[in-house]
């Protein structure tokens, strides 16, 4: 024992006696606290074992979560309580060392960069320029093919849909829409025939076909022949952010975008009258062929969906 103490005194800078108040537990009744903590930890251990059992028998997810979560929770509480109430209560202190170093060190560091490094470059400007230029050029050159290979160029794809002169309007199942299909006040989402199951068809070509009564309907100038027999078609892509404008209020004659509540007046060229959408929904010119099917006269006359730079 005395040998140990000698050794310590020789090396140590500071020490505390076992009975120093800093080293005492914060709890006033450590025996009781220890028992409570032991109980808490025990509950945790039991629950963790329960988690294993629940997993083994493939119990319902909530059983797994309850046993695992509860177990970890109780273990955590016990461990913290141990640290908080039974370990040395402190407080302890340590010095903060100044992080900044001496001025000489800084000067030496700066000198190393400026004089040693800078000197090299200064003497061989051409070499420095070439290395820098080459790396810079590589950076720029590498960026382009990297970006470029990420995807095709937009070209004109945003300006067109797959609606053509004479495209049949079909629903999601591919069934052609006949003039007698819809009652007044009915709505159906249509696609140009052949695209109803393609990504592009669903994302770009989707169109709402509504049958309206003619009262209160205002025909837009130049679109007199676009909505035969009360059938009218608007792009289903909101002009705000491209969500499908699938919400049709039959009495108010509004198409509403469920995402940000832009509202388009169906009776008046789908001009927005509420919300953030800036433009009317583009209208698809329709005609009814001899057999009574709804078909498109042409593509939309303007790009569908949200705005972008190249759009006029």
């Amino acid at each position: 024992m005395s040998e140990r103490r000698e050794h310590r005194t020789a090396v140590s800078l500071n020490g505390l006696r076992e009975d120093d108040p800093h080293l005492q537990p914060a709890a006033r009744n450590p025996q009781l606290v220890e028992r409570v903590i032991a109980l808490t930890l025990l509950v945790g251990v039991v629950l963790i074992i329960g988690f294993g059992a629940a997993y083994w028998v493939n119990a319902a997810p909530w059983t797994l979560g309850a046993t695992m979560g509860g177990g970890l929770f109780f273990l955590g509480v016990g461990l913290i309580a141990w640290a908080k109430y039974l370990m040395a209560r402190g407080p302890f202190v340590e010095e903060r060392h100044v992080l900044a170093t001496s001025q000489e060190d800084r000067d030496a560091f700066a000198a190393a960069i400026v004089e040693r490094g800078g000197g090299v470059v200064k003497r061989r400007r051409v070499l420095g320029g070439l290395v820098g230029g080459g790396l810079g050029a590589f950076g720029v050159v590498a960026l382009f093919p990297l970006l470029r290979s990420l995807g095709p160029l937009p070209k004109g794809t945003l300006f067109h849909t797959d609606w053509r002169a004479g495209s049949f309007a079909v629903d999601i199942t591919g069934r052609r829409i006949h003039v007698s299909d819809l009652a007044v006040g009915s709505i159906v989402t249509v696609f140009p025939e052949g695209t109803q199951n393609t990504d592009r068809g669903q994302a770009v070509d989707q169109t709402v076909l509504i049958r309206l009564s003619n009262e209160n309907f205002t025909t837009q100038k130049g679109r007199e022949s676009w909505g035969p027999m009360g059938y009218i078609a608007y792009s289903k892509l909101c002009t705000h952010l491209g969500c499908p404008v699938g919400l049709y209020e039959q009495q108010l004659q509004l198409l509403v975008c469920p995402c940000h509540q832009s509202m388009f007046n169906v009776n008046n060229g789908a001009i927005p009258n509420f919300g953030p959408a800036p433009r009317p929904l583009p209208q698809l010119p329709l005609y009814i062929d001899a057999a009574g099917y709804i078909r498109s006269q042409s593509d939309y006359h303007e790009p569908v969906g949200p705005g972008f730079w190249e759009r006029s």
């Binding site: 979560g69 955590g76 461990l79 913290i80 141990w82 640290a83 402190g90």
Partner: peptide, 25 residues
């Protein structure tokens, strides 16, 4: 060591535990 380490480990267990309880219920 050991006080902070015990506390922070316990806290990690509690964060995991609370997440699991939310995930359960």
């Amino acid at each position: 060591f050991p006080v902070f380490m015990a506390k922070t480990t316990g806290f990690m267990l509690i964060v995991t535990g609370v997440t699991a309880l939310l995930g359960a219920f």
